[in-house]
């Protein structure tokens, strides 16, 4: 079963301390709309008369014109909306180092912060039912699901993304993959936010410079013989730079996080939490 990274409890504790929103009474974090905090989502909570402590920018000017009275619209805070995990379970992820541990750890952090998490696995489309996790105690189910997740098939992230958008209204989505598909571009996040978490394995980690390799594609099974020479290294670097540029081109509401084997994952957790609560 994938273990939670040992630094995660400390990160969770630290983030809870510094995040004032998490200090609110738990009743306010309930699902009852009466106790949900107002915020910046598009989910309308109520329309009430303008009060002196309200931000004048929140005044609904159309209502003011019709009724000669100032009203403000209040929306539910999107912080308490659920988060979707789109987990690449295609054949290319079979050997990804720390893949399941990272997803499990991130789930541990998000559930610990009171956020609900829905998990979908995908290959050439969404695979299997979603896993809905609503509290810290559900983390064990996430670990078990990740542990039992079988990899195989070809990757079609774009198709899986479309299926997810059709199946779920959740606007905050994490996509975990190696993003090896040629020409892949991050999906438009719409009104929400998308996190592209890439598990990258530089080929130089597999190949010694100047050697020949017989490389099998884990998804198609085709085999090529490759001289790992300067030309191939340069081609890999150039292609990698283009791929990174493409993954970063999703706009301000799209975040790209790359994880290489052996690197510490703690900075990635911090970065994700910071951006999630920004």
């Amino acid at each position: 079963m994938p273990q939670v990274d040992p630094e995660c409890p400390a990160i969770l504790a630290a983030f809870r301390r510094r995040n004032i929103k998490s200090l609110l009474p738990s009743s306010l974090a309930a699902r009852d709309p009466m106790y949900r905090r107002a915020g910046s989502s598009f989910d309308l909570k109520c329309i009430r008369e303008y009060q002196p402590f309200d931000d004048p920018r929140a005044i609904d000017w159309k209502l003011l014109g019709r009724t000669d009275r100032a009203y403000v619209k209040e929306f539910y805070d999107e912080a308490n909306e659920g988060i979707a995990f789109l987990v690449d379970a295609s054949g290319s992820m079979a050997g990804a180092e720390g893949y399941r541990e990272f997803i499990s750890s991130l789930g541990f952090l998000l559930l610990g912060l009171g956020l609900s998490v829905s998990v979908w696995a995908y290959a050439d489309g969404l695979a299997g039912p979603r896993l809905s996790l609503r509290n810290r105690g559900a983390h064990r189910r996430l670990s078990e699901a990740l542990d039992g997740m079988e990899t195989g098939g070809r990757t079609d992230t774009a198709r899986a993304w479309r299926q997810l958008r059709a199946a779920s209204p959740l606007r905050r989505v994490f996509v975990f993959s190696d993003f090896h598909e040629a020409g892949f571009r991050p999906p438009p996040p719409g009104a929400g936010r998308v996190f592209l978490v890439r598990f990258r394995l530089p080929f130089s980690r597999l190949a010694q410079a100047g050697t020949e390799l017989e490389v099998t594609d884990p998804e198609t099974g085709s085999v090529i013989t490759l001289p790992w020479d300067r030309v191939e290294e340069r081609a890999w670097d150039e292609a990698e730079a283009m791929r990174e540029a493409g993954l970063r081109s999703g706009g301000p509401r799209s975040s790209y996080i790359r994880l290489d084997p052996g690197e510490s994952r703690a900075p990635a957790y911090w970065e994700i939490l910071e951006r999630l609560h920004a």
């Binding site: 190696d178 085709s222 791929r243």
Partner: peptide
Amino acid sequence: LRRKARYPHELLAPGGR
């Protein structure tokens, strides 16, 4: 002496090469 490895070919021979 040739070694074997499993790696997505699209990362080795991408279209933008």
